[in-house]
Design a protein around this nucleic acid. Structure first.
Lengths: 348, 348
DNA sequence: GTGAAAGCGCTAACAC
DNA sequence: GTGTTAGCGCTTTCAC
C-alpha cells in the first residue's frame, strides 16, 4: 500500500542519473563555478526527472548558515503585531531571507523555547516582541553571534538593537487630550508590569495628569493582560465603582475593544458621558461608533526598521536604539458634549 | 574587536569536557538509553559551562525528521487566519511539534517558495490556506510523504486532507436572511475566482436568490481581493450605480470593513436604507454601529481539526474531508425598518 | 572544468 | 553501560 517515497532524491541520485559527480550537481545548483553547458543540461534534466530538491539540513550543516529570520511575537491575534510582521517580511524577502513567525502567546516559557529553537537552528537573525523585559533571555543568542532586534517592548540586554515607539509621549498626549476636552476623572487600563510598554504608557498617563495639576488616583489604574477579555474586566471593575471615572485611557487595541464592550454592558454612552482614547489604530477604529480616538503607531515602519537593523546589525559592533513617534488621531470617542452626530449623512 | 564565538559548542566539545564520548552526551540529551548518574552529572555540568545547544540541522540530517509543521496562510493580517492558527498551534504544541507560520500574501509564487522550503526541510507536515485552487502545487509534498491539510480553501489534489466550512450554506443563509428582511436588490462582493471560497459563497448567494424566485443580476456581483481596500472599491462601484443595490452580502471580514467605509463615504445609512451581512465574525463586529450581522466560522476548531488530521493523516492511507458548519449571527446591520436603536441603554 | 574525498554535528548500530 | 564507528546529504578543498 505504501509505495510513496518517504524522501525525495538525493544529490547522489541526480549525479548518477546525469553521469556526473555530486560536486557538479552542487555547482549547477549554486552557480558557484563554471560548468560546461552540456553537463549542465544533463544535470537539469536529471533534476527534473527525479524532482530533486536539495535537502536543507544537509546544506545548513555544511554551510553553517541558513537564510531564515525568526520573528517571535507575543500575540499572533493582535493586528498590531501582524502588521509589524509585514514590514519585516518585505525587508527579509527582498534580501533573500525567509521568515518564520513564532507566537509566544505572552508566555515566557514558550518564548524561551522559540529562542532555543532559533539558537539550535543558528538562524540568521531574530526579531522579538518580548513577553517580559527582564525574563526574556536573548543574550545567549547574541553571544552566539545571532543578531537580535527587539521591537515594541524593551529587553534587558546591552547587546540587542531595538525599534520602539515613544510610548510615554503617546500616552501623555492621549491623556492630555482627554483633559483638554474637559474630562476630569480619567481611568487607565494598562498591561502587565513585566512588559515595558505597560509601564511607559502608564508613566505617560501619570505625567499628563501631574503636569496639569491633577493628582494621580491609583485606584483608577488597572493592570490587565493586553487581551480583549482583560480589557473588558478591567473596564467593568472601573466603571462599576461607586465613584467611576468619566474617561478611560486604554493602553492597547484589544483591551480597548473589551473596554468598549464593558462600557456598553454597563450602560454608559461614549462620548456622551464617557470619553475613551485607545492605543494602536485599526481598520475598524473609525467604523466603531463613536469613532475611536487613538494613539497610532507606525506599524509597518517598525517592522521595516527592525529588518534593516538585522541586516546591518550583523556586521556592526555597537547597538542602536530607534524610537519612532506616535500620532494622536482625534476622532469622536474623546469629544465631550458631542451627542448623536451625523444622523444626516455628510457627503453623498 | 570581534571576540564573539560565531557558533556555540559542539557535542564533541561537551564530551571532551565531561570526559565521556559524544554518544553519551547524545544519550543524556535524548534520554534514549540509561546513563550512569555520575556521568550524566558531568555531562550536565559541561553543557551548562559551555552553554551547549544541540545543532538542529545536524540532528535533522541524521534523524531524517523534524518536528515542525509549516502553516502557509494567504494573509497574516486577516484575523480569521490568525485565529485558525491558534487552533493548529495548540494541537502542535501538545504533541511536540513546533509551528512556523508563512504568509503567502495571496501570491502563488510566494506560496510556491514556501512549499519548496517545507519540502527542502522535510517538514513533518503542512497546513495550507491556498492562494489558488488550481495553481497551488501540493502534490510534490504528498508524493514525498509529507502530509498536507488544506484549510478554508480547496486545492486540486486527491492526496490532501482538508477542513473546510460550508461556504455555500453560509452564504445562502446570509442572502436568504436579507431577503426575508425585505431587502430586494442584493449586491454581492466576493473574492477572486482562483479561490474556492469565493465561488462557493457566490454560489450560495445565487442559490438563495433563485430559490426564492429572484433572478440573479450579474451586474450586482463584484469580484475583489479579500482585502479592505478591495471591499471599499467594490462597494463604491456598486453603490454609485444609477440603480444601486439596497443590500450587500460581503464574502469576507476585511472586505466588509472596506464596504462599510464605502457606504459611509457614499452617504448611505445602515440599516436604514442599506442592509449588510458579512462573512466571518470579529471582536469588533458588535462594536461597529450598527452591529454587524455575520456568518461566523468556527475558526479555532478549523485549526484544531487540521492539526489532528495532520497527526493521524501521516499513517492513514485514505484522505478525509471535513466540512464544519457556519452560523448566522443576526445583529443590526441586516434589519429593515430599524432606525436608531438603543438610545436608551438596555442594561445598567 | 571536473571528480574524488573529506568533513560539517549528530545519532544509531555495533562492539565490548 | 559506554565507547567506537559509520554515515545522514551536502559543499568545498584539492588534485588532475
Amino acid at each position: 500500500m505504501n509505495n510513496k517515497r518517504v524522501h525525495g532524491a538525493s544529490i547522489g541520485d541526480v549525479a548518477r542519473r546525469a553521469g556526473v559527480s555530486a560536486a557538479t550537481v552542487s555547482r549547477v545548483f549554486n552557480g558557484t563555478k563554471y560548468v560546461a553547458p552540456d553537463l549542465e543540461e544533463r544535470v537539469r534534466a536529471a533534476v527534473a526527472e527525479l524532482d530533486y530538491e536539495p535537502y536543507g539540513p544537509a546544506r545548513a550543516l555544511r554551510q553553517q548558515r541558513v537564510r531564515v529570520w525568526a520573528v517571535i511575537i507575543a500575540d499572533v491575534e493582535n493586528p498590531f503585531f501582524t502588521s509589524v510582521v509585514r514590514g519585516i517580511e518585505d525587508v527579509a524577502y527582498t534580501n533573500g531571507y525567509r521568515l518564520v513567525l513564532c507566537n509566544s502567546d505572552e508566555d515566557v516559557t514558550k518564548e524561551t523555547e522559540y529562542l532555543d529553537i532559533a539558537l539550535r537552528e543558528r538562524m540568521a537573525g531574530v526579531v522579538i516582541a518580548a513577553a517580559s523585559t527582564s525574563e526574556s533571555k536573548v543574550d545567549r543568542l547574541t553571544e552566539s553571534g545571532i543578531p537580535v532586534v527587539a521591537i515594541d517592548r524593551e529587553v534587558e540586554s546591552s547587546s540587542v538593537n531595538s525599534v520602539m515607539v515613544d510610548n510615554r509621549g503617546g500616552a501623555r498626549a492621549a491623556t492630555a487630550h482627554l483633559l483638554d476636552n474637559g474630562w476630569e476623572r480619567i481611568g487607565c487600563i494598562v498591561g502587565p508590569t513585566r512588559v515595558s510598554t505597560s509601564n511607559q504608557r502608564l508613566d505617560g498617563y501619570r505625567r499628563a495628569l501631574t503636569e496639569r495639576g491633577h493628582s494621580v488616583d491609583k485606584s483608577l489604574v488597572r493592570r490587565a493582560d493586553f487581551r480583549v477579555e482583560g480589557g473588558y474586566k478591567a473596564a467593568r471593575s472601573l466603571l462599576e465603582r461607586a465613584d467611576p471615572p468619566d474617561a478611560l485611557f486604554v493602553a492597547n487595541n484589544l483591551m480597548t475593544l473589551g473596554a468598549l464592550h464593558a462600557v456598553e454592558d454597563v450602560g454608559r454612552a461614549v462620548p456622551d458621558d464617557l470619553g475613551i482614547v485607545g492605543f494602536d489604530d485599526s481598520p475598524a477604529a473609525d467604523l466603531i461608533r463613536p469613532r475611536l480616538t487613538v494613539v497610532a503607531q507606525p506599524t509597518y515602519q517598525i517592522g521595516q526598521r527592525a529588518g534593516q537593523l538585522l541586516l546591518t546589525g550583523a556586521d556592526d559592533s555597537f547597538t542602536r536604539h530607534e524610537v519612532l513617534s506616535t500620532e494622536l488621531i482625534v476622532r469622536d470617542s474623546s469629544a465631550r458634549e458631542t451627542s448623536v452626530r451625523r444622523l444626516q449623512p455628510e457627503r453623498g
